[in-house]
């Protein structure tokens, strides 16, 4: 059963308890200075944004078919069956293709380090595996961030929109975007205001499909290419051999078989 986080911006009060709980869970410093930072970074995996007293939480979307996982050459990023997209720093070589590929700009980098890691929300995989909610969901005093089964949360989000259609945009961000995500968002104002890609700009196909269409042809290409090139080589050199043999025959005739 795949798990998910549902964030409902209309219930959020911008108390930043989720930020603090996240920092504690991941052994990151958290004080007033960090709390005031309005951007995600290698030391701040989630942030509550405030635009004219409308709120939005930003965190890794934990795509069902993540671009970051598909592009990582060494498999340092993995999508787990329960939902979290996790990271193994020991495998990472620091190519940053995950950062270039992520449509939500989520993986962040330790730019100042000589042994830099990718940093992002990993959806508390140990807690989730132990049947606990994520740290942020546990800390949320209003239920704006809720953890549970993805299907049940989608149903709940639909019910909330149906019961209070005036409070919400009629869209659950994360059901269809790039093939579905394990982070679901509800809002009363446009998601784009908070730096999220507009739902219209995102394809409903998972992004890894775009490369797979090309990559899947390679196993056929290699033997066919080899046979083709070998064939061309054989033909071009055979021609030469024939010409040489005919030349030798002619020579032989002219020289009266002296050869």
């Amino acid at each position: 059963m795949s798990k998910a986080i549902l964030y409902d911006a209309t219930l959020c009060i911008d108390c930043k308890q989720c930020e603090a709980a996240c920092a504690k869970q991941n052994n990151l410093p958290y004080d007033d200075k960090v709390a005031a930072e309005e951007v995600q970074s290698a030391h701040k995996f989630t942030v509550v944004l405030n635009k004219n007293d409308k709120y939005m939480r930003r965190l890794c979307m934990h795509c069902d078919e993540p671009a970051c996982v598909s592009v990582c050459p060494v498999g340092a990023l993995q999508k787990t069956a329960l939902g979290p997209v996790t990271y193994d720093a020991h495998k990472c070589m620091g190519c940053r293709y995950c950062m270039a590929a992520c449509p939500f700009g989520q993986p962040k980098y330790e730019w100042g380090s000589l042994n830099p890691k990718i940093q992002k929300c990993i959806m508390c995989p140990d807690r989730v595996a132990a049947g606990l909610p994520t740290a942020c969901a546990e800390a949320c005093p209003t239920g704006a961030t809720k953890f549970g089964d993805r299907d049940a949360l989608i149903q709940e989000a639909r019910d909330r929109i149906r019961q209070n259609p005036n409070n919400y945009l009629p869209h659950i961000y994360g059901i269809e975007e790039v093939g579905g995500t394990s982070t679901l968002l509800l809002s009363s104002v446009a998601f784009e205001q908070f730096g999220l890609p507009s739902p219209k700009s995102l394809p409903s196909d998972p992004l890894p499909m775009y490369t797979y269409r090309v990559l899947s042809r390679i196993p056929d290409f290699v033997p066919l290419g080899g046979i083709f090139l070998g064939g061309v080589w054989w033909i071009t050199h055979r021609r030469e051999e024939v010409a040489a043999a005919e030349g030798a025959e002619n020579d032989a005739k002219h020289n009266g078989g002296a050869r």
């Binding site: 050459p73 060494v74 990472c92 070589m93 042994n115 990559l215």
Partner: peptide, 26 residues
């Protein structure tokens, strides 16, 4: 120069993700 952890440049030899274009390029 560009890899953040250049000493791990050999990792694709033993850690393979065939779905990655970067892996294929490597």
């Amino acid at each position: 120069f560009d890899l953040g952890r250049p000493y791990n440049i050999w990792h694709p030899l033993i850690m393979r993700n065939p779905h990655s274009v970067m892996f294929e390029v490597a």
